[in-house]
């Protein structure tokens, strides 16, 4: 009995040690990068605008870069610290531990980039700045970048909400009414393959503001794939489910909204994620062509001054912003389709 207990204790202790090692390895790459950034600071501009008060403690692009590394290390320490404190070993921790090789690689890659781009400036300039210079862009232009990010976000939000609404509702109408399907579906099929930006000249002339024009293009992006897939989902609802519902006393509305729409829901989400990819491309492209703001606009106006480090800064913001949007949609989808878990792999 006590032997078993002792060996179990031993196993627990060993797994503790393994966890700590994995944690250290996770942080190792970033720690190296941080050390390099501190020991060999790159010559970057100091803060100049009042908005830099926020970043007062980091001062320079190199400082902000180092600060960001520290933030990353703290974030990556949360999972193991919580696990150690609570003493529970969840699936989250397992996944965390499995990822440390990748995170070492990320840290070392950042470090290498920093050395080549910022410290020795070996990479062709000004096209390939290092991470510290890119961080510098956030200090120089913090307010302007924030403004443009919000502009992009607003544009996307308007286009997304309107597009999903119209996409789902036309999809339901086309899927439900055979007449509507006959007349509208072929049109949808043809217009659906046209890249939305092709409508840009038309949009710019027929909408009162550039914002409305770009929003219209995003609506187009969302509308067609979602309508297409929703219609398919509604039409592929098994007859038996309708019949079961009717013998349970369901009326027309119930058949549409509580049988056809739930059946089409997986399709609707596929439509949304397909459409989002188009929408991101369209968003940036239309911002680069005649918008008074937005990340695409910021890229364009930075390019004119050959400020490529600012272009990269905008790219970083896009990567974070769009990943975040995808992550949120995925979460919503996972929750809405939880009934499928285990049904489809």
């Amino acid at each position: 009995m006590s032997v078993v207990l002792a060996s179990r204790k031993g196993a627990i202790a060993r797994s503790r040690v393994k966890q700590c090692v994995a944690w250290c390895f996770t942080l190792l790459g970033f720690a190296v990068a941080l050390a390099v950034a501190i020991v060999a600071p790159s010559p970057a501009k100091a803060a100049t605008t009042p908005y830099d008060l926020v970043f007062g403690l980091v001062g320079s692009g190199n400082g902000l870069y180092a600060f960001m590394l520290v933030v990353l290390m703290v974030c990556y320490s949360l999972t193991p610290i919580i696990a150690l404190v609570s003493g529970r070993k969840g699936a989250g921790l397992e996944r965390y531990l499995a990822r440390y090789p990748f995170r070492i690689a990320v840290g070392l890659a950042l470090c290498l980039w920093n050395v080549l781009g910022d410290v020795f400036e070996i990479l062709p300039r000004p096209f390939f700045p290092g991470p510290a210079q890119i961080a510098g862009a956030f200090l120089e232009d913090s307010a302007f970048i924030l403004h443009n990010t919000l502009y992009s976000l607003r544009l996307f939000a308007v286009g997304f909400i309107v597009g999903v609404f119209f996409g789902v509702s036309t999809g339901i109408i086309i899927g439900w009414f055979a007449k509507a399907y006959y007349w509208v579906f072929p049109v949808l099929k043809i217009t659906g393959v046209i890249p939305a930006v092709a409508w840009m000249p038309f949009a710019l002339t027929s909408f009162p503001t550039p914002f409305a024009a770009a929003a219209f293009l995003i609506v187009i992006c969302e509308w067609f794939p979602i309508a297409f897939l929703t219609a398919q989902g509604v039409r592929s609802t098994p007859k038996q489910l309708y019949e079961a519902a009717r013998t349970l006393g369901a009326g027309q509305r119930t058949l549409v909204f509580r049988v056809a729409v739930p059946h089409a829901l997986p399709n609707i989400f596929t439509g949304i994620s397909t459409a989002n990819a188009y929408a991101f491309a369209t968003l940036v492209m239309s911002e680069m062509m005649g918008q008074p703001g937005g990340l695409g606009y910021y890229i364009n106006s930075s390019k004119v001054w050959s400020a490529y480090y600012k272009v990269f800064a905008a790219i970083v913001v896009m990567a974070i912003l769009f990943s975040l949007i995808l992550k949120i949609t995925e979460r919503v989808q996972r929750h809405a389709l939880r009934w499928q878990r285990g049904l489809i792999q």
Binding site: L241, E243, A244, A245, R246, T247, L248, V259, L265, W339
Partner: peptide, 20 residues
Amino acid sequence: GPNHKRGVVFQQGSLFPWLT
């Protein structure tokens, strides 16, 4: 037409998969 006073139990697979 169908009515809930005349219930039907089908052979199989008539449950709504998205409902508990």
